[in-house]
Computed example of a mutant assay.
Amino acid sequence: MRFIHLIIACSLCMPFAPLYGGERAEAAAMISEPATKQTSKGSSLTRERMELFQWMEALYGVPWHYLAAIDQYERTINKKRKSAPVTDRLTAITIPPAVWSGYLNPEEDDTDESSISFFGGIGIDGSGDGQADQQNDIDVLTAMIRFLSDFGYAREDFRIGVWMYYRRDRAVKTIDQFAAVYEKYQTLQLDQHAFPIPRRYTYSYRSTWGDPRGWGGRRIHEGTDIFADYGTPVLATGYGVVEVVGWNRYGGWRVGIRDMNNIYHYFAHLSSFRKGLKAGDIVEPGQVIGYVGSSGYGKPGTSGKFPPHLHYGMYRDTGSGEWSFDPYPQLRSWEREMRRKKK
């Protein structure tokens, strides 16, 4: 609530001004840093973060869901960056010291905006406290907005700006997907999940991650097999974007969905897909995406080489690569929650 009061107060006295045009907006210099101490948890911090993004949108014109998408991407990757510990932060965006201060700047933690500019850094004093602080949410967001504004805020322009910052195609795709989901649902609270098989259907499973597999060469099983009858509906397990719909010689007819935690969910051996499902679709937990089958292990259309089941895999993006991990604990957790809700 304190942040809402700050927004109201500032909106009454601060006209909008662009980041460029001779000098920075005087409005930015009048900003008092919002209260960011973690005096509350969960939904309260999420609400404050949302208010911050919407405030920056009102001030600078950048769509709030762009900032939220970048912040969420930073939250989900394992960063190996040399920076001061983040304590009183609402956001997770961490600009590398060399980028912030300038690659040739001898002071990686430089807070002097003039010297940062001299060395080509992007750091800026957005809060108006006289320091360009890498641990100040307002300063960091203002610096990121200033960088992106060079390219524009249309969707394709934004994608170019993100690529110029991260230099990684996967980052561009994921951030673009996050932005689309946030824009659709108009909230940051998208962490709900669902078990992939509806409760009213018969199914069974156990932990099979890491078991040996032989077809197509020696490899390990990167998922959990959930056995169910042909035609059993398969549900999206979280909010996300469909990345892949089609055939894979190992997984047969399969669907790949990236969720809002930057985890890729792999649904394989399907008999068919939900009608009209395609790459780029936004899905939510509990939404039907396909139906259990026994497809795979051969050319398109191959089926029946094993009993019908859903192969469910999870892969985490670390910022430099993608690795599988055991989905069994998550499945058990979602199953318990499903049963609890039905009581």
Rank of each mutant, 00 (worst) to 15 (best):
G223R: 05
W323C: 01
G246M: 05
T111E: 03
K173M: 12
T111S: 09
P106V: 05
P198L: 07
P63R: 04
E51R: 10
A29I: 04
A84H: 06
Y205P: 01
D229I: 00
E322C: 06
E113N: 02
Q189V: 10
R89Q: 11
E183G: 06
D157E: 15
V86P: 02
I95D: 05
T111Y: 00
I289T: 01
S294I: 04
A68K: 06
T302Q: 15
R167L: 11
E322V: 13
Q134V: 02
D176P: 09
K343N: 12
G321K: 08
R49E: 06
G223A: 01
F118G: 01
D169R: 14
W163L: 08
S117E: 14
L6A: 13
Y266K: 02
T91H: 09
M14K: 04
W334S: 08
T94Y: 00
P329A: 01
M1H: 11
H265W: 07
Y203P: 02
I77F: 02
Q38H: 15
Y73C: 09
K305C: 02
P300D: 10
I8L: 11
M164D: 12
A29N: 12
S320R: 13
Y166K: 10
T187Q: 13
D110A: 09
S32V: 13
K341M: 11
Q135M: 12
P15C: 06
V242D: 08
S40K: 13
S149R: 09
K173A: 15
H269W: 09
E156T: 08
